[in-house]
Computed example of a mutant assay.
Amino acid sequence: MQRQAETIGKRWDYCAKGYDAIVQNEFAGEVAEKWSGLLKEHAPCEKGSVLDIGTGPGFFAVLMGQMGWKVTGIDCSGKMVETASENAKKAGVSAEFYQMDNHQLDFPDESFDYIICRNVTWILYDPLRALEEWKRVLKPGGRVLYFDANWHMTGDEAYREAIKRDEEEYRRLYGEPENTYTGDADTDEEFDKVLYFKEVLRPEWDEIHLPELGYEKIQVIPRVNEQVYSEEKKLLYRSIPMFLVRADKPEE
């Protein structure tokens, strides 16, 4: 398990600078306000303790801190943790950040009211274990909210062709899409091998397995692209829907 976490962390170390550039643009524009609205709308309470899993450069962590929550962020990449800490300080937000495997959390049972993450669950190597662990650290009645898409999924020919068409139109209008990865091919190949969801369609998978893990009050929104993306990204990711999944840990 440690080896898989290290493989994923190493890959995302190479993305920290590029992802930070994206996040800085989000902070500066209207996208941050859109995300804050969604995080607030789906929160289980007005304020409390929140865990941002796969915090990356700390985008969600900063937004939640600005809303008055007690914030903890984790990431398997040490460089992402460093970047998130710097961004929180710049924003005047008090938050704690740790390098940690998303599947094995170093927190006591029932530590958090709210768990949030964006574009993280697709990189899980054992999602059932991870989601069980997340439920463990939630307080009774606590909530997990995550946003993701079928990133890196092979899909069928029609799916691949649709993505290709979107990318070509994007290039024609806006130039080359951002590529945040700056590492070597071997690291990226090793990362690709540990991806559980590479051939698994979601959020159908989540709708099946979250109840089995003991979550309740499950809500799935299959597409939120139009709510959270800039005009450019609405085009680039037109054929890759970002979905929302919300689920609660039962009250005692």
Rank of each mutant, 00 (worst) to 15 (best):
D126F: 00
C117E: 11
R118D: 01
K193G: 07
R171H: 06
N150H: 08
L195Q: 05
V120Y: 00
V120E: 00
Y181C: 07
T182S: 14
Y146L: 14
Y196I: 04
L173M: 14
R160Q: 15
A130I: 03
P203D: 02
E178C: 05
W122G: 10
E157N: 04
E168P: 04
G141P: 03
N119W: 12
L201G: 02
Y146F: 15
G142E: 07
E157M: 05
L131N: 11
E207L: 14
E169W: 01
I123Q: 07
V137W: 08
G175R: 05
W151H: 11
T187E: 09
T182R: 12
L124W: 07
L195D: 06
L173V: 06
W205I: 10
L138P: 12
K139M: 14
A162L: 13
Y174G: 09
F191N: 03
P177I: 06
Y170K: 12
L201Q: 14
L195I: 04
I123D: 05
K139P: 10
W151V: 10
L145W: 06
D126W: 01
L145Y: 09
Y146E: 05
G141T: 04
A149D: 01
A162I: 04
Y125T: 11
N179G: 12
E204D: 12
V137P: 11
W205S: 13
V194Y: 02
A149E: 01
E133N: 13
P177Q: 11
T121R: 01
P140M: 04
R172G: 01
C117V: 02
R118H: 12
N119A: 14
D184I: 00
E190I: 01
G142Q: 07
E157C: 00
D184N: 04
A185I: 15
R129E: 11
E190N: 09
N150Y: 08
L138H: 09
L124A: 09
H152R: 15
G141E: 06
E132P: 02
L201H: 12
N179Y: 03
E132Q: 14
D126T: 06
E161D: 07
D166E: 13
P127A: 09
K135R: 15
M153S: 08
P140S: 06
R171I: 13
F191T: 01
E161V: 08
W151R: 05
D192W: 07
F191C: 02
R129M: 05
K198I: 00
L131C: 09
G141V: 08
L173P: 06
W134R: 04
T187W: 04
D156I: 03
W205G: 10
R118K: 15
W134L: 13
D148E: 03
Y159P: 00
R143D: 06
E168A: 12
I163D: 11
T121H: 03
G175W: 05
D148K: 03
N179M: 02
C117H: 14
R136I: 08
T180F: 06
V194I: 15
K164Y: 09
E157P: 01
Y174T: 07
V194E: 11
